Simulated assay, not measured.
Amino acid sequence: MYAFLSIIENAMKDSKVDRAVGLCKKIVGSFSHSWKRSRDLAEAQKELKLPMHKLKTECSTRWGSRQAMVQRILEQLPAISHVLSPDRKARHLIPMWQDVEVLEAINSTLTPLVDFTDALSGEQYVSISSVKPVLHLFETSVLAVGNDDTEFTKSLKSKILGYLQEKYSDSKTQDLLDMATTLDPRFKMSYIREEVKPTVRARLMDEMTGLNPAKQCAPSSAPEPPKKARKTLGSFFKAAKDREESDPAVTHEQAALLELESYLLTRLIDSEDDPLTWWREHAGIYPRLSVLARKYLGIPATSSPSERLFSTGGNIVTCQRSSLKPQHVDRLVFLAKNL
């Protein structure tokens, strides 16, 4: 799966954006490397009654840092101009109106995406089933062109949407997203096109008929039955039911179809509920579908959590601790992520 973070960054590759972002980095560098300018910036903030905030810079490995840098530059632009205007050597760093227009477009485009991407790639687990609903929200609201948007803002939004659509246009990726979204009780087929729904139903039926729910749902460590178990009246009914289900092959297909139709007819759960918890509670009602849910909903939406785990491991296994044994590294990483 492609991470939303890298997709959005690649979609914003533009000469105007590169120039404006590069100018912001130079401004931040000029103030961070000069204590006099930092002092003058603080005095200008007091004089102009601006928030006493320090400038931020972009970090290539941290999502949202570009938007944070641009937003802080726009916030402190009067104070920055006040400090740099008397300095002939640094006067060229003051953004021109064209640069300000580009920075405002970047800020207005990226600000709504920050919360979405933070939620999608956060520490809390997010399944792949959320990808299609998020793409739908991007197209209909978050990245929808507004009446007050400038031409450059419209261009940025259209580039990001076009890039997203291109990245997820592969047929295999679409099939995977359709199956995962359908098996999510928060969405089901709400975000699947009408002409694709019969195909998704057929794929679900094919996978369900190939499963044996009795074996799939049986506990791995079942307690041993007593040596002399006394038969009850219910055991006779259960044995008769097992014979009826195991005899004709059509019965198994009918049971799978009824299970699928029953699941699709139930109401959607709240969007804040955990779909994995819901399937754990309803595994007995939908034994075949619950197996497929474990298969598809176990795929994370982005690779960000695993990348954070690698970063944690890199912080632990340093040059001074290169002799750590693998099992000790595993334990230290576990403690670092769970304490």
Results as ranks from 00 to 15, higher is better:
L257F: 14
P226E: 09
M205G: 12
S220R: 14
K241D: 12
K241N: 10
A239G: 10
L264N: 04
G234A: 13
S290W: 03
S190T: 15
P219I: 12
A222C: 09
P326W: 07
K228S: 09
V291Q: 07
K295T: 03
M205P: 13
A255E: 09
W278R: 01
E244N: 04
P275I: 01
E307D: 06
L265Y: 08
P198D: 00
E259V: 01
A180C: 07
K215S: 15
E272P: 05
S306V: 14
P326E: 05
E281G: 06
M189H: 15
L289T: 05
T251E: 11
I299Q: 00
E281Y: 06
S235P: 13
R230K: 09
K228I: 15
R193A: 13
V200W: 00
Y263T: 11
T209Q: 03
L289M: 09
A202G: 15
K231V: 15
S290Y: 11
D242E: 10
S271V: 09
T232S: 11
K228Y: 12
L268C: 10
A214H: 15
Q254T: 15
T251D: 12
A229L: 14
H282I: 05
L297A: 06
M189C: 12
T209P: 01
E281V: 06
E281W: 05
E224K: 15
P305S: 05
P185W: 02
C217K: 12
T266Y: 03
E253L: 11
L258W: 11
F310V: 14
W278D: 02
N212W: 07
L260N: 02
A256C: 10
A239I: 10
T318R: 02
L258G: 14
N315F: 09
V200C: 00
R243K: 13
A239Y: 08
A283K: 15
P198S: 02
P198K: 00
L297F: 02
P198I: 00
L276R: 09
R321S: 00
V317K: 01
S190Y: 13
Y286L: 00
